[in-house]
Amino acid sequence: MPTATKGVLVQCDPSIRALILQIDSKAPGIVLDELDETHLLIKQDQVMNVKNELNKLLSKNIYNPFDEQ
């Protein structure tokens, strides 16, 4: 008998997938299943959290012209 798991399917490119896995390794319990290269299954209540963490990680490498002034 097949089973159904509730969750949120995340579609992204492999680099972002690696970042999400990195977030998960620091705070376990986010990723439920690694589906394939471009898909992950994550917990429903963690979607916003993942998006925020991703934004933080991605913003690290941004040059802000106003910092110098």
């Binding site: 008998m1 097949p2 089973t3 159904a4 798991t5 949120v8 399917l9 579609q11 429903q44 998006k51």
Partner: peptide, 26 residues
């Protein structure tokens, strides 16, 4: 492009099928 790096869909994952045929049907 940077804005939509991930797309999310709520739903359910079906797994643990006993046979290939069961899987194919569903």
């Amino acid at each position: 492009l940077e804005l939509d790096r991930i797309q999310t869909f709520e739903g359910y994952l079906f797994k643990d099928f006993v046979s290939q045929q069961e899987f194919e049907v569903l």
